[in-house]
């Protein structure tokens, strides 16, 4: 059964392992928590497995990729103990996604309106009227000037920035407990990036929704999050408060990441790439961890 304890984490990932069919691990013993109303940044290089964590939580892992070990709890409820149908409706009720690419995240042949209201009527059982009113309210909140006209438009009639704002409105519309924002600004140009970031932060504060914010930009981390998880090759190598990470990073990789981030106030400092020796060392650790894991599995 799905028991909910009084003071549960919004999201609790415990020792999660995700693997390809042959056993090649993409996530290695990942644990992370989100408290209600908290923004946690998830950083790491491309291919580190950031998106995989979000997909595992939201139940949209690609066909061949499976959870091999570990637990995911939403508000204290074990997702893995549920039947697929219960799990789908639980995830749909409690969480939402702000995707990376606003070009492909909206169905090109369907109008905007139903794409926002569908989950509201389907999962939350709202009337069509109520869902429409809520969509209008949120579109207005993300500064879409003519909500009704936009809801009757097709995605290709709108700019990338508008589409991303629509996706933000859609994510916040059902008042979810958790939002996974997977690099929501990467596909946009710099000026639009700032607006989008500000919008997410404002809405997050107003609603108190917990946000797992995936990014590889340490500058964004500093602006938006209270906690940081640093991922390397599917492993968590640092998990701390954002302030701590910037003032006193524990892991050399995190130190290197911060050094590699050009900051306006320390612009005199030369740009430092992550040292190759460090990367090699980290890969060696990963291989050792995998060997140990495989050995334990055989026993």
């Amino acid at each position: 059964m799905t028991m909910t304890t009084a003071h549960a984490h919004t999201l609790d990932i415990i020792n999660l392992n995700i693997a390809l069919p042959r056993g090649q691990r993409l996530l290695r013993n990942v644990s992370l928590q989100l408290e209600p109303g908290e923004v946690r940044a998830l950083v790491g290089e491309s291919g580190a497995g950031k998106s995989m964590i979000g997909k595992a939580v939201l139940g949209i892992l690609p066909h061949r990729i499976k959870r091999t070990e570990g637990e995911i709890l939403l508000e204290g409820a074990h997702l893995n103990a549920m039947t697929p149908a219960t799990r789908r409706s639980t995830v749909a009720k409690m969480s939402a996604l702000i995707p990376q690419d606003p070009l492909t995240a909206l169905n090109p042949v369907r109008k905007i309106g139903p794409q926002i209201t569908d989950p509201l009527t389907r999962i939350h059982g709202w009337s069509h009227q109520r869902a429409l009113a809520r969509a209008r309210e949120l579109l207005d909140r993300v500064h879409i000037r003519a909500p009704d006209r936009v809801m009757h438009s097709y995605p290709h009639e709108l700019s990338g920035g508008m589409r991303q704002r629509i996706l933000i409105a859609a994510a916040f519309a059902p008042s979810p407990r958790l939002i996974v924002a997977d690099e929501p600004t990467t596909a946009l140009d710099v000026t639009v990036q700032k607006q989008i970031l500000r919008l997410i932060r404002e809405l997050q504060r107003e609603t108190g929704t917990a946000v797992l914010f995936v990014t590889h930009d340490m500058g964004v981390v500093a602006k938006i999050s209270q906690k940081v998880t640093v991922l390397f090759a599917g492993r968590v190598i640092e998990d701390a408060a954002t302030r701590t990470v910037f003032e006193n990073p524990a892991h050399p990789y995190t130190q290197a990441l911060i050094a590699a981030t050009p900051t306006p106030n320390v612009s005199a400092e030369p740009f430092q790439p992550v040292p190759a020796a460090l990367i090699t060392e980290l890969h060696r650790e990963t291989l050792a961890a995998d060997a140990l894991y495989a050995q334990r599995g055989r026993r």
Partner: peptide, 27 residues
């Protein structure tokens, strides 16, 4: 495409996703 994932997160069943999201695109 990501819109298929979005529909799934929004609680759509697999078969429903195929019929109402993908079919109109291949029509």
């Amino acid at each position: 495409m990501d819109y298929v994932d979005s529909a799934r997160i929004g609680g759509a069943r697999r078969a429903a996703t195929l019929v109402s999201e993908i079919l109109p695109n291949v029509m």
